[in-house]
Simulated assay, not measured.
Amino acid sequence: MKKVILLVLAITSFSIANAQVGEGTNWLKIGVHGGVPVGDVSDISNFALGFDLKYQFLNTESFAIGASTGYTNYFGETEGLIEYSDFGIIPLAGLFRYYPTENFFLGADLGYGFLTEGDETGGFYYRPEVGYHNDSWNIFAYYQGLSVDNFSPASVGVGVNYNIIQGK
């Protein structure tokens, strides 16, 4: 819980610092993503599907920060008589982006991910992304992972976000 509180304080601090700069463009991003489970979870799930909610502050021409949340559902599969349950991840993360060109970006969402099922409550959440961006939408490829003591679900996939421009 202390990690979550520290993460929220860090995101809030970035937000306040950004509000004082008064430059760049802010976006509210709403999107969907889908992927194939890899690693620990590939034996019990065959598909991951989710939605994203992000707020991005574009402070300079090349760098951006923000906050990210959403939900990813890992669909359980059936093997013979064994049926695995669905489970989900709810991230609370900071968003970091680098734009080497106007429309191309590299970035990562880093923070804490809450598990919706099982004995573990959550752990370190990470989601590196690479994609194409314009003022209306983004399309990206990602690797999403969660580091938990005995269970580390991950997926590789693609997503699309619709950008709602908030202001310049």
Results as ranks from 00 to 15, higher is better:
Gly88Cys: 05
Val130His: 07
Phe51Trp: 06
Phe87Leu: 00
Gly70Cys: 03
Phe87Thr: 12
Tyr99Thr: 11
Thr69Asn: 06
Pro153Cys: 11
Glu61Val: 08
Leu7Arg: 12
Tyr132Ala: 09
Val32Ala: 15
Val4Met: 11
Val156Gly: 09
Ala67Met: 05
Lys2Ala: 13
Gly94Tyr: 06
Ala93Gln: 09
Ile165His: 13
Tyr132Val: 01
Ser13Ile: 00
Asn138Met: 06
Leu115Phe: 07
Gly39Phe: 05
Trp27Glu: 13
Ile44Trp: 01
Phe105Arg: 15
Phe140Thr: 02
Thr12Phe: 06
Ala108His: 04
Phe75Pro: 07
Gln166Val: 03
Lys3His: 11
Phe140Pro: 09
Thr101Ser: 02
Trp137Lys: 08
Val21Leu: 00
Glu77Phe: 01
Leu49Asp: 07
Ser152His: 06
Ser45Pro: 04
Tyr132Cys: 10
Pro37Glu: 11
Leu81Phe: 01
Ser152Val: 04
Gly70Glu: 11
Asp40Gln: 02
Ala19Ile: 12
Ala93Ser: 15
Ser42Pro: 04
Phe63Trp: 07
Gly70Lys: 14
Ala93His: 13
Glu61Met: 09
Thr101His: 05
Leu110Val: 15
Leu28Ala: 04
Ala141Tyr: 08
Thr25Asp: 10
Leu81Ile: 01
Gly111Tyr: 06
Glu120Lys: 12
Gln20Val: 00
Phe87His: 03
Lys168Asp: 09
Asn103Leu: 06
Gly94Met: 10
Ser13Gly: 15
Ile5Leu: 10
Phe14Lys: 06
Phe63Asn: 06
Val8Asp: 06
Ile90Gln: 12
Ala141Glu: 05
Asp119Ser: 13
Ala154Thr: 07
Asn46Trp: 06
Val38Leu: 04
Gly70Val: 01
Gly107Ile: 13
Asp52Leu: 07
Val32Gln: 08
Tyr142Arg: 08
Asn163Ala: 08
Pro91Ala: 07
Asp43Trp: 00
Ala67Asn: 14
Asp40Val: 00
Gly39Ser: 14
Asn103Trp: 08
Gly131Ile: 01
Gly159Phe: 01
Leu9Trp: 07
Ile164Asp: 09
Ile139Ser: 14
Glu83Asp: 10
Asn59Pro: 11
Tyr98Ile: 03
Gly31Glu: 14
Tyr125Ser: 10
Phe63Lys: 07
Phe96Gln: 09
Ile165Asp: 12
Glu83Met: 01
Asn26Gln: 15
Val156His: 11
Gly113Phe: 01
Asp109Tyr: 04
Gly35Ala: 04
Thr101Gly: 08
Ala48Lys: 14
Thr78Arg: 15
Ile16Leu: 05
Gln20Ile: 03
Ala19Leu: 10
Leu95Asp: 11
Ala93Leu: 04
Ile65Pro: 02
Asn103His: 15
Ser152Ala: 12
Ala141Gly: 15
Thr78Phe: 08
Ile44Ser: 00
Gly31Pro: 03
Gly131Lys: 11
Phe87Val: 01
Asn161Lys: 13
Asn26His: 12
Gly24Met: 02
Asp40Asn: 03
Ser42Met: 03
Val160Tyr: 10
Gly118Val: 00
Lys3Pro: 04
Leu110Gly: 09
Met1Trp: 08
Ala108Cys: 10
Gly113Pro: 03
Asp149Gln: 14
Ile5Trp: 08
Val130Ser: 13
Ala108Val: 01
Gly35Phe: 06
Thr78Gly: 03
Asn59Val: 02
Val21Pro: 01
Ser45Lys: 08
Asn134Trp: 02
Val156Trp: 11
Thr116Met: 04
Ile89His: 09
Val158Ser: 07
Leu106Phe: 15
Asp149Asn: 14
Gly111Asn: 10
Leu146Asn: 08
Ala48Pro: 01
Asp86Trp: 02
Leu6His: 14
